[in-house]
Write a protein that binds this DNA or RNA. Structure first.
Length: 584
DNA sequence: GCCGTTTTCGGCCCGACTGTTTTCAGTCG
């Protein structure tokens, strides 16, 4: 198993463990339903609304759907000791490289077992050698095409990029959709899948197209200028690779199936399975073509997505919630929460100007925010110890005050609050004294250095900073940079407790490379009574529009306007900040 | 291996595409 990224919850790691067990059981030829039980549990844990380690510590593993007596024991052992004897014993039955074989697209458990038994192939290296020496084609059930395809897939696997950032992926998806909409056969075209659910990273892109004759769409897809490679093609579904190794699946359906198909291809898988179970209980069958009466085969619903939910007795469920973490039960009772929307956002409490490392002036940033409909911003340039950014000394804070006053006069009633993104130094010391902090209208605090400290030290360092009465918000609480830097080690549950106790908000940073705090922790914070600030961390006017990504994360965390400081009117925000300063 | 206002035993979500098959298993999403 790969090691845990520091500070992140272990849900993904545990899900991969169960997937690994499922794969090996499958190679052994175990009963499919037993294999599926592991897969099902893996999916549930991956989509859990809270960290699995918390669930374990609190003795609630059995409350997870799909976890029974046996899995509770296995998960407990793994979470406590870091390994699982059952899994190790299972692995010992095969060559150590067999698990990686299952990673090769096109090579499932049956073929893996075949090549192992017939050729003794037990690793990726051996598989590649066997393919190059044309030994695979002689295995009964395989052939020349399979041999060639596996070579291609092994090659791709070596150069595989991991998950993609949501913003860049969205851009590519929009470009493809523009092209597809220009295709004469196409009526409607949208993105679905994890992109529509706005997960913070994207594996592949699912595009859905409506056409009177879906089979005509295939040609349009193959003629897209973005196509680098074709993985699969057919009248209903075509899979291509575009730049950056991004896989795009295009699915075409008739307009009468549009809603059912959109529902189906938005997922998540766990959410869809629950819906299909509900359909079955009502004597129906749900697939991507519609909701059908099982006996008569007549179409019950399918043209629009809301029709499908409505027929199943559910409120329409926002895509960001579709993870089977309680949304279906609430939708059945008509009690889904009112989620935050981009239009609820009134302010932006984290942005920089050219006084430090930003690219725009204070006035430019203010005018750009105003143009986006914001009512206020907090200018949070860096503090003095962050030298590389030309962090503000106390003297320069005083000088900047005058500039902000001028802008406020010019743009009233729009309001620029003078704030700071202040470094939390080692041992939790702050970069300004209380007198300076008192002179600022909004104080947010960040970790920018010393990220390799131990979990205990980091947790206490942050906690100490949050106990200062002037600190209103903890910025990007996990410090991760997607694809380049793992989160630092920290006891986030403890940080959340301290934040709630002292009335400190947690930031959801909208930068696509950050998306920090992650939605799983934000939801946990919400349940613990935390407040949030959803900010762009813009370093130039063009980045003020990144807010949509932070809002998406907030929605995935089930946040409403009441949880988000910068969705409040300015007077309410100022009242909250003043109250915070009265809490010691 | 899990689970239950149809069941504590007998079920367990659904369809498309590929390749090697002469009618379908394997794989994927």
């Amino acid at each position: 198993m790969s090691s845990t990224p520091p500070g992140r919850s272990r849900n993904g790691e545990v899900a991969r463990l169960l997937e690994g067990i499922a794969g090996l059981l499958e190679v052994k030829g175990e009963q499919a339903f037993r294999v599926n039980a592991y897969r099902n549990a893996a999916r549930r844990i991956e989509g859990l609304s809270e960290p699995i380690e918390t669930v374990h510590t609190e003795g609630r593993l059995r409350e997870i759907q799909g976890v029974g007596v046996a899995l509770e024991q296995k998960l407990g052992e793994y979470l406590t000791t870091g390994s699982l004897r059952y899994y190790e014993a299972l692995r010992a039955e095969f060559p150590p490289g067999l698990v990686e074989l299952l990673e090769v697209p096109g090579l499932g458990p049956r073929k893996a077992r075949l090549v192992f038994e017939q050729l003794g192939v037990g690793s990726l290296v051996e598989l590649e050698a066997a393919a190059r020496e044309h030994r695979l084609r002689d295995v009964p059930g395989l052939g020349e095409r399979t041999e060639q395809n596996l070579l291609t897939e092994i090659d791709r696997l070596k150069r595989r990029t991991t998950r993609h950032q949501v913003e860049a992926t969205l851009t590519i998806a929009e470009e493809l959709l523009d092209r597809l909409r220009a295709c004469p056969a196409v009526r409607r075209a949208v993105y679905a899948g994890s992109l529509r659910r706005m997960q913070d990273t994207i594996g592949d892109v699912d595009l859905l197209v409506a056409a009177e004759r879906p089979e005509e769409v295939e040609r349009c897809v193959l003629e897209l200028p973005q196509v680098r490679d074709v993985l699969r093609q057919g009248p209903a579904r075509t899979s291509i690779l575009v730049r950056g190794g991004l896989q795009v699946d295009v699915r075409a359906v008739e307009p009468k199936s549009w809603g059912a198909a959109l529902q189906y291809f938005t997922g998540s898988k766990a959410h869809n399975i629950r819906l299909r179970e509900i359909a079955i209980k009502r004597g129906w069958k749900l697939n991507e073509y519609g909701l059908f009466d099982e006996r008569t085969g007549t179409l019950v619903a399918g043209a629009e997505e809301d029709d499908v939910y409505d027929a199943l007795g559910l409120q329409p469920i926002p895509p960001e919630l579709r993870e089977d973490t309680g949304e279906i039960e609430l939708a059945a009772e008509g009690r889904l929460p009112r989620l935050l929307e981009l239009s609820d956002i009134r302010g932006d409490l984290h942005l920089h100007s050219n006084w430090t490392d930003g690219g725009s002036s204070v006035e430019e940033m203010a005018r750009a925010a105003l143009a986006l409909g914001r009512e206020y911003i907090a200018l949070t340039d860096h503090s003095k110890s962050l030298g590389v950014t030309n962090g503000l000394t106390e003297q320069r804070i005083a000088e900047q005050r005058l500039v902000i006053d001028e802008v406020n006069q010019a743009l009233a009633p729009f309001r620029v609050l003078q704030g700071t993104e202040m470094d939390i130094k080692r041992e939790g010391r702050l970069d300004y004294d209380d007198e300076t902090l008192a002179s600022l209208e909004y104080v947010s605090a960040s970790i920018h250095s010393g990220m390799k400290q131990t979990r205990e030290v980091m947790t206490e360092r942050i906690a100490r900073a949050l106990r200062n009465r002037y600190v209103a918000t903890l910025n990007h609480p996990h410090g991760r940079l997607i694809g380049s830097r793992a989160a630092y080690e920290v006891d986030m549950a403890a940080v959340i407790r301290v934040a709630v106790e002292h009335g400190v908000a947690l930031e959801i940073n909208s930068q696509p490379a950050r998306m920090d705090l992650e939605s799983i922790w934000a939801r946990r914070g919400r349940d613990a009574g935390a407040k949030f600030a959803i900010n762009t961390d813009a370093h130039a006017t063009g980045q003020l529009g990144l807010m949509r990504f932070g809002v998406a994360t907030a929605r995935r965390a089930w946040l409403g306007p009441e949880h988000v400081l910068n969705a409040w009117p300015l007077a309410d925000l100022l009242g909250h900040l003043a109250a915070r300063r009265r809490i010691p």
